[in-house]
Amino acid sequence: MTSSFPAAEKSFRGIWPALLTPLTAGLDIDHAKFAAHCKALIASGCPGVTAFGTTGEGPSFSLAERKEAIDQLIKNGIPAAQIMVSTSCAALPETLELTRHAVKAGVHGCLMLPPFFLKGVSDQGIIDSYRYVIDGMAGTPFKLYLYHIPQVTGVPLSHQVIATLKKQYPETIVGIKDSACSTEHSVGLANAFMKDMTVYVGFEPDLPEMGKRGSTGAISGLANFVPRLVKRLVTEPEAPATPAERERVVKLIGLLDGYSLMPALKGIMAMQSGDAAWLRVRAPLVALTPEEYKALEKTISAFGIDTKSE
């Protein structure tokens, strides 16, 4: 039975897709297409969207580009309160600058990685990094989600780090996004912290298990094109259809094996939208070759994605 945790009421609910970032021919952010994608996702039932995370190639864009993109989303009709922003940068002053900008703009909250350039740093160093940003907000209230994705950052968030930060900033730290893709790890976080904040997972096959444990939503890459399906996995974890829908998601993820993930996700967006411009990525990522795209298109076409129900 799904539990209710009143202490986590400040955290988000539902699916806030980890947005893919559309690019122009010059590899700048395509602001009009970005806003249109957000509007389509919100119209499909997503309460909000998440910009510049891993799926969105966040660290590949400059501070000026990321700030301008958020300003343009709001200008183009996306309510600020329905935007989550990953403000993670290698340099702490830049993370603080992006966080200040996002909070001033009125966004729902910020998603923040631990320091991700230097490796082998201590728990205290990670705690001090988060403290630099939170204390630098000069008492301005905001919602912060800790982001654990050690296979990308090389810097894990230990239980000690999470517990220490939650104790020091109980009103600011409202959730954890666990993208380690380990059911055991996610369940461990839920057992340790779900009473005080919401634990979300980025690995969609784990959503039913986490939904049973009180998770209320997800920041999901697959939700760029199957948001309704992803939502059902976490909000209806014990529905009769859920096991089959979970297996469908497992199969979809398996079809992407052998491809670089973000270019492949953009490939599916290109297929679903009929717009080949979605194939563009920023270096160091490399776009799908015509041969790779043709092979992926054949595979996804055989799989079939129902944009009306999924």
Rank of each mutant, 00 (worst) to 15 (best):
D135R: 15
V155S: 03
V174L: 01
F116R: 04
Q151V: 13
L189C: 11
G188D: 02
G188F: 06
A180F: 09
Q168L: 09
K195E: 04
G136L: 04
V174P: 13
D128T: 07
V161Q: 02
S179N: 07
K177R: 10
K195H: 12
T164E: 12
D128F: 13
Y132H: 14
S129V: 03
H185K: 02
L111V: 14
G154K: 09
V152W: 14
I127P: 15
K166W: 13
H159F: 14
I126G: 04
I134D: 05
G136F: 06
K119F: 03
Y147P: 12
A180Y: 12
Y132S: 06
G188S: 03
P156E: 00
H185D: 05
P156I: 00
I173L: 01
K167P: 10
A163L: 08
V187S: 01
P141G: 05
M137W: 13
F116G: 06
A180N: 06
R131C: 08
P114D: 00
V155A: 01
N191I: 05
K195V: 01
Y145F: 14
I127L: 08
F116Q: 11
V133E: 02
M137K: 11
D196S: 08
R131H: 13
A192R: 15
A190R: 12
I176W: 01
Q124P: 15
S129R: 10
P114I: 01
T183E: 13
D196G: 08
S186P: 15
P156M: 00
S186T: 08
D196A: 02
S182H: 09
R131Q: 11
I127A: 07
G120E: 13
K195P: 02
H108F: 15
D128C: 05
V121E: 05
M137D: 04
C181S: 09
H108T: 05
K166R: 15
Q168I: 02
S179R: 04
G188R: 07
K166E: 03
P150V: 00
P156H: 01
H159D: 09
T140G: 00
S122E: 11
T140E: 10
T172C: 03
F142K: 03
G136Q: 04
I173D: 01
D128W: 13
H159L: 06
H159Q: 09
E171W: 09
K143W: 11
D135L: 07
T140D: 02
D178G: 06
Q168A: 09
C110G: 01
A138M: 12
Q151D: 11
